[in-house]
Amino acid sequence: MEARARLERIWRAGVAAVGGHAAVARALGSEDVPRPDRILAVGKAAVEMARAALDRYGAVPALAVTKHGHGQPVPGLDVIEAGHPVPDATSLKGGAALIAAVNDCGPEDHLLLLVSGGASALAEAPEDGLSLSDVVAETRRLLASGADIATMNARRRELSRIKGGRLLEGFAGARVTVLAISDVEGDGIGVIGSGIGRVPDGARFASLTRIVASNAHARAACARAARAEGLAVVTDEESLYADVADCAARIGATLRAAPAGLHIWGGEPTVVLPDAPGEGGRNQALALMLAREIAGRPDLAVLVAGTDGTDGPTDAAGGLVDGRSWEAGADAALAAADSGRWLAARGLTFAPGPTGTNVMDLVLALKSDTG
Rank of each mutant, 00 (worst) to 15 (best):
49 M>L: 12
48 E>G: 14
50 A>N: 07
79 V>Y: 01
50 A>P: 05
46 A>D: 11
65 V>A: 12
56 R>Y: 10
66 T>Y: 01
81 E>F: 01
85 P>S: 04
76 G>E: 13
64 A>C: 06
49 M>N: 07
81 E>I: 02
46 A>V: 13
71 G>T: 07
75 P>I: 05
49 M>K: 10
52 A>W: 04
70 H>K: 04
79 V>H: 02
47 V>Y: 05
61 P>I: 04
50 A>D: 03
69 G>V: 07
84 H>S: 02
81 E>C: 04
46 A>L: 13
62 A>F: 06
67 K>V: 00
84 H>I: 00
77 L>R: 10
61 P>E: 12
64 A>Y: 04
73 P>E: 12
76 G>R: 13
62 A>K: 08
49 M>S: 08
54 L>G: 09
68 H>Q: 12
86 V>D: 00
72 Q>Y: 15
74 V>N: 09
73 P>Y: 03
86 V>N: 00
84 H>T: 03
69 G>L: 06
79 V>A: 07
73 P>T: 07
51 R>S: 14
49 M>E: 08
62 A>H: 08
73 P>F: 03
74 V>D: 06
87 P>S: 04
61 P>S: 11
74 V>F: 07
50 A>H: 05
67 K>S: 00
49 M>G: 09
77 L>A: 09
57 Y>L: 08
60 V>S: 10
58 G>C: 11
76 G>W: 12
58 G>P: 07
69 G>I: 03
71 G>K: 08
85 P>F: 05
60 V>Q: 11
58 G>K: 12
51 R>T: 11
56 R>M: 06
48 E>F: 10
69 G>A: 13
47 V>M: 08
53 A>V: 09
78 D>G: 07
82 A>E: 01
86 V>F: 00
68 H>D: 07
82 A>L: 03
67 K>P: 00
49 M>R: 09
85 P>K: 06
56 R>P: 04
72 Q>G: 10
54 L>Y: 11
87 P>V: 00
66 T>V: 10
81 E>V: 02
81 E>M: 05
77 L>I: 02
65 V>D: 08
86 V>I: 15
75 P>T: 06
79 V>Q: 02
49 M>P: 04
70 H>E: 15
52 A>M: 11
59 A>L: 09
75 P>N: 07
47 V>C: 06
49 M>W: 08
64 A>P: 04
70 H>T: 04
54 L>H: 10
78 D>H: 12
72 Q>A: 15
65 V>S: 13
74 V>M: 12
62 A>C: 09
87 P>H: 01
85 P>W: 06
48 E>A: 15
84 H>E: 00
82 A>D: 01
57 Y>H: 15
46 A>I: 14
78 D>T: 14
85 P>M: 03
46 A>M: 13
46 A>W: 07
69 G>W: 00
54 L>C: 11
83 G>I: 00
54 L>W: 09
67 K>G: 00
72 Q>S: 14
63 L>A: 11
63 L>F: 05
53 A>S: 13
57 Y>W: 15
74 V>W: 07
59 A>K: 14
66 T>N: 09
78 D>W: 00
56 R>A: 15
64 A>H: 05
70 H>R: 03
85 P>Y: 06
50 A>L: 06
54 L>P: 12
82 A>T: 02
83 G>N: 03
74 V>H: 10
51 R>C: 06
83 G>H: 01
83 G>L: 01
75 P>C: 09
78 D>L: 10
69 G>M: 07
64 A>M: 05
